[in-house]
Amino acid sequence: MEKQHSRAGSLSRRDFLKVSGITLTVPLVIGPRVLKVAGAEVKVFGPGRVPMTFTINGKTYRAELEPRVTLLDALRNEFELTGAKRVCDRGTCGACTVLLDGKPVYACSVLAIEAQGRAITTVEGLMQNGKLHPIQQAFIENDALQCGFCTPGFVVACKALLDRNPNPTPEDLVAGLGGNLCRCGTYVGIRAAIAQAARMQRGG
C-alpha cells in the first residue's frame, strides 16, 4: 500500500504571479518599500491590502486590495462591473477583455495594482449618451451572440480592432479576434457584425 501526501492541485495563475515577482521574499509590511533588485530600485507593495485608485470608463474608483488581485477580480468583485468574465483564467479565451489606454488586454492576466493611472474601458463603458455603440447594435442585429457569456469580451475586442483598423480584411479579423473563443459558435454573426459596424463607422 502506497501512502501519498497530497499537495492539492497544481500551481494556480495567482501563485505564479506571486512567485514570479519578488513579493515572497518580503516580510509582512503594509505600504510600499523600496528594494534593490538586480541593481535597480523596485517599489514593493503588500502582501496586505494597499489603497488603489483606478480610472474606469472615465470615472474614478477606489479600493483597498491585495497586490495579488487581478484587474478582472477587482472589476468584478469590488466595483460590480461584471461584464468581463473569468473563463480560462489564464490568457487564452478573451472573455475578460478590457481596454487599457485603448489597447485590448486580458484582465485576468493584469494585476489591478499595475492598471492604476491608466484609462480602463470595460464593456459597460461603450454606450454613449444611453445609446448602444455601433458594434453593440451590429452584434444584436446580426445575432452575434447566443448565451452571451463570451460577448462582452468579443465586443471590446471588436472595438479595439476597429479603432486601430477601420477597414479590416478577413485576415485582420482573424488576427484581431483570434484571442477570443466562443463555445456557442457565434463567429458567423460576429463576422457580419464587424463588417456592418465598420460600414456604419465609415458613415456608410
Binding site: 492539492a8 468584478r76 468583485n77 460590480e80 462591473l81 461584471t82 461584464g83 468581463a84 468574465k85 473569468r86 470595460t122 464593456v123 459597460e124 461603450l126 454606450m127 448602444l132 453593440q136 452584434f139 444584436i140 442585429e141 445575432d143 451572440l145 452571451g148 457569456f149 460577448t151 462582452p152 465586443v155
Partner: peptide, 30 residues
C-alpha cells in the same frame, strides 16, 4: 433580433457567475 440582446452586449446581463450577494463567502473544493 433577440429581446435580451441589449443586456448581453452591454455587459449588464447577470449570470449566476455575476451574482454578488451582500456578505457573500467564496467556496472552494479540495
Amino acid at each position: 433580433s433577440r429581446v435580451d440582446g441589449p443586456e448581453k452586449v452591454t455587459g449588464r446581463a447577470k449570470y449566476t457567475y455575476d451574482v454578488n450577494r451582500p456578505g457573500m463567502l467564496a467556496g472552494k473544493i479540495l
